[in-house]
């Protein structure tokens, strides 16, 4: 076990930021911490890194208790914080060299590692640039390079794609998967469910400092009743037409908003086919039809009764 958190509690006065949190991360995993803003993701990360004192609980990294003085453990951790933490006074190369130098004292070895990190995040053309000259996406990449250059066994990324353009985001997500393929265990926090769904092998959903659900994305989706969501653009369907759709097998809910019908099914096969046949039989003219499998947002919605991005 790379990370083991047991009964972690963190309070800010009367506010309980983390409420008896339990989780563990196995070697080789990309472990996702998903939750809306203020759910306790960053607080959890700060406690993991001993940047914050916590009120109760235990944290073990690599089988040893994590404390502010556990420098041997820190040597194996790579950290990419939510805010870009680089020196404006140093170039891209110098920044990566500095952060790598905090872990690796051998100059020759460090040079190789820094070059590798630059290649990895695709900043070869920006080595001599100062951070102020970089775009938001490039800055994020620099931030990641600074965190991973020393090739740590455990990499913690706290919302590394906030305010990043889609192109850079994809590049960053691909990079994280590549780091994992190279052997690093990763803890990834985000409030973007698509990202977490895309890269994480196991996900923990947090809300108000509590664990809502933990598992692989499939396990999480199986926890909820919704199996498929079909959306039909239709102009003022009659009550009998809606009734006919509701009567179909596996259908657990139909919402009619006048020009759109949202049909939720509880798994099963041929749901879309059945809906199309019913629309034809009921002579209901329709426009576009979408069929979506449940997302983590649906999981969050069903468990907490609110949207993930509320």
């Amino acid at each position: 076990m790379i990370v083991k958190v047991n009964q972690l509690v963190k309070r800010y006065g009367d506010l309980v930021a983390i409420d008896h949190l339990n989780f563990d991360v196995k070697e080789g995993e990309i472990f996702g911490l998903l939750g809306p803003n203020g759910s306790g993701k960053t607080t959890t990360i700060n406690c993991l890194l001993s940047l914050l004192k916590y009120d109760k609980g235990e944290i073990e990294l690599f089988g040893k208790s994590m404390t502010p003085e556990a420098y041997d453990l820190k040597r194996n951790i790579g950290i990419v914080l939510q805010n870009v933490a680089v020196f404006d006074e140093l170039t891209v190369y110098e920044n990566i060299d500095y952060f790598c130098g905090l872990y690796v004292s051998d100059k020759a070895k460090r040079k190789t590692l820094v070059e590798e990190a630059i290649d990895f995040v695709g900043l070869e053309d920006y080595k001599r640039f100062y951070p102020k000259k970089l775009s938001g996406g490039l800055l994020r990449r620099l931030n990641i390079a600074c965190g991973i250059a020393h090739q740590p066994k455990l990499i913690i990324l706290d919302e590394p794609t906030v305010a990043v353009d889609p192109q850079s985001r994809n590049k960053i997500l691909e990079g994280i998967q590549e780091l994992n393929r190279r052997g690093a265990t990763i803890i990834y926090t985000s409030h973007y469910m698509e990202e977490v769904e895309q890269i994480c092998t196991r996900i923990m959903i947090l809300d108000k400092g509590r664990v809502v659900a933990t598992g692989t994305k499939e396990q999480l989706k199986n926890m909820i009743s919704v199996g498929e969501k079909i959306t039909v653009e239709a102009y003022h369907p009659t009550p009998s037409q809606i009734e006919a759709i509701t009567a179909l097998p596996n259908i657990i809910g139909v919402e009619n908003s006048g020009n759109q019908i949202v049909i939720r099914s509880a798994g099963g096969k041929n749901n879309l086919e059945n809906v199309l046949e019913t629309l034809k039989r009921e002579q209901l003219s329709y426009g576009k039809i979408y069929s979506e499998l449940p997302t983590l947002n649906d999981v969050f919605l069903e468990i907490t009764g609110k949207e993930l991005r509320d």
């Binding site: 890194l49 940047l51 502010p68 003085e69 420098y71 041997d72 820190k74 040597r75 951790i77 950290i79 914080l81 805010n83 870009v84 933490a85 680089v86 020196f87 006074e89 952060f99 905090l102 872990y103 600074c146």
Partner: peptide
């Protein structure tokens, strides 16, 4: 002042440098 910046301070605190 530079080393006292919150983000850099946090980042340095995470490192094995005492």
């Amino acid at each position: 002042l530079v080393f006292g910046r919150k983000d850099l301070k946090m980042r340095n605190t995470c490192s094995p440098v005492t």
